[in-house]
Deep mutational scan, measured.
Amino acid sequence: SSPEYTKKIENLCAMGFDRNAVIVALSSKSWDVETATELLLSN
C-alpha cells in the first residue's frame, strides 16, 4: 500500500477506530477520509 493510504489508515486508527474497520471503510469510500470517518462514526 502507498504511504498516502497508510497515513490515512494511521490517522483514523489514532482516533480510536479498529484498523480492519478503517481499511474496510476507506476502501468502500474510495479512500476519502471524510466519508469513511462518517461511516465509522455511524456504526
Rank of each mutant, 00 (worst) to 15 (best):
S1G: 10
S1V: 10
S1R: 09
S1Y: 11
S1F: 15
S1D: 11
S1W: 12
S1L: 14
S1A: 07
S2C: 11
S2W: 02
S2I: 03
S2D: 08
S2V: 06
S2K: 03
S2Y: 08
S2L: 06
S2T: 13
S2P: 09
S2Q: 04
P3A: 13
P3S: 13
P3G: 12
P3W: 08
P3D: 12
P3K: 08
P3E: 13
E4Y: 06
E4C: 02
E4G: 02
E4A: 07
E4R: 03
E4Q: 04
E4H: 07
E4L: 03
E4W: 03
E4F: 03
Y5D: 11
Y5V: 08
Y5F: 13
Y5T: 11
Y5W: 00
Y5M: 12
Y5L: 12
Y5A: 08
Y5N: 11
Y5K: 12
T6K: 08
T6D: 12
T6W: 03
T6E: 07
T6V: 01
T6A: 08
T6R: 11
T6S: 11
K7A: 13
K7E: 12
K7Y: 06
K7S: 10
K7M: 07
K7V: 07
K7H: 10
K7P: 08
K7L: 07
K7N: 10
K7D: 15
K7C: 05
K8W: 00
K8C: 03
K8E: 10
K8L: 06
K8P: 05
I9E: 05
I9T: 02
I9N: 02
I9W: 00
I9R: 01
I9H: 01
I9L: 03
I9M: 01
E10D: 12
E10S: 08
E10W: 00
E10C: 03
E10V: 03
E10H: 06
E10I: 09
E10R: 04
E10P: 00
N11I: 06
N11Y: 01
N11K: 14
N11R: 12
N11A: 15
N11C: 08
N11L: 08
N11E: 14
N11S: 14
N11P: 05
N11V: 08
L12V: 01
L12W: 00
L12H: 01
L12S: 05
L12D: 01
L12A: 00
L12Q: 03
C13K: 02
C13P: 02
C13V: 14
C13I: 14
C13S: 09
C13R: 04
C13T: 15
C13H: 01
C13W: 00
C13D: 04
C13L: 09
A14K: 12
A14F: 00
A14G: 08
A14W: 00
A14P: 00
A14Q: 13
A14V: 02
M15V: 01
M15R: 07
M15Q: 12
M15H: 03
M15P: 00
G16R: 00
G16D: 06
G16A: 00
G16S: 02
G16P: 02
G16N: 02
G16T: 00
G16L: 00
G16E: 01
F17K: 03
F17H: 06
F17A: 06
F17D: 01
F17Y: 06
F17G: 05
F17T: 04
F17M: 03
F17N: 03
F17L: 04
D18H: 02
D18V: 00
D18E: 14
D18F: 01
D18L: 00
D18Y: 01
D18K: 07
D18T: 09
R19L: 05
R19P: 08
R19T: 08
R19G: 01
R19C: 03
R19N: 02
R19K: 10
R19W: 04
R19D: 07
R19Q: 09
R19E: 13
N20W: 10
N20M: 06
N20F: 07
N20C: 06
N20I: 09
N20A: 13
N20V: 09
N20K: 13
A21P: 04
A21H: 07
A21E: 15
A21R: 10
A21M: 06
A21Y: 02
A21G: 04
A21L: 06
A21S: 11
A21T: 08
A21I: 05
V22F: 01
V22A: 13
V22I: 08
V22P: 04
V22Q: 09
V22M: 03
V22S: 10
V22R: 07
V22C: 07
V22Y: 00
V22N: 04
I23G: 11
I23Y: 09
I23T: 14
I23M: 12
I23H: 09
I23L: 11
I23E: 15
I23Q: 14
I23S: 11
I23N: 13
I23R: 10
V24W: 14
V24E: 15
V24Q: 15
V24G: 15
V24R: 15
V24L: 13
V24A: 15
V24K: 15
V24S: 15
V24Y: 10
A25F: 00
A25P: 03
A25C: 02
A25Q: 03
A25K: 00
A25G: 03
A25W: 00
A25E: 03
L26F: 02
L26D: 14
L26Y: 01
L26K: 08
L26M: 04
L26I: 02
L26Q: 11
L26P: 11
L26R: 07
S27T: 15
S27D: 12
S27E: 15
S27Y: 03
S27Q: 07
S27V: 10
S27M: 11
S27W: 06
S27K: 15
S27F: 04
S28P: 02
S28T: 14
S28Q: 14
S28C: 08
S28E: 15
S28F: 01
S28W: 00
S28G: 07
S28N: 12
K29N: 13
K29R: 13
K29D: 03
K29F: 04
K29C: 09
K29W: 00
K29A: 14
K29L: 07
K29P: 05
S30D: 13
S30N: 13
S30G: 14
S30W: 04
S30K: 12
S30Y: 06
S30A: 14
S30Q: 15
S30M: 09
W31D: 08
W31M: 05
W31G: 14
W31E: 08
W31T: 10
W31S: 08
W31I: 04
D32Q: 08
D32H: 04
D32M: 02
D32A: 02
D32R: 03
D32K: 05
D32S: 06
D32G: 03
V33D: 03
V33Q: 05
V33H: 07
V33C: 09
V33A: 10
V33T: 15
V33P: 09
V33K: 05
V33N: 04
V33F: 05
E34R: 12
E34Q: 13
E34H: 04
E34L: 06
E34G: 11
E34A: 12
E34C: 07
E34D: 13
E34Y: 02
E34W: 03
E34P: 13
E34N: 10
T35D: 15
T35Q: 15
T35C: 12
T35M: 10
T35I: 10
T35H: 10
T35P: 13
T35G: 15
T35W: 04
A36Y: 02
A36K: 02
A36C: 04
A36N: 01
A36P: 04
A36W: 00
A36E: 03
T37N: 13
T37E: 12
T37P: 07
T37V: 10
T37Q: 14
T37G: 08
T37I: 09
E38M: 06
E38S: 12
E38G: 09
E38C: 04
E38K: 12
E38D: 09
E38N: 12
L39C: 11
L39T: 11
L39M: 12
L39F: 12
L39I: 08
L39S: 11
L39Q: 11
L39V: 13
L39K: 07
L39P: 05
L40M: 05
L40F: 01
L40R: 03
L40N: 03
L40K: 06
L41Q: 11
L41K: 13
L41N: 12
L41G: 09
L41P: 06
L41H: 08
L41E: 15
L41T: 12
L41S: 08
L41D: 08
N43F: 02
N43V: 07
N43L: 11
N43H: 10
N43Y: 07
N43S: 12
N43D: 14
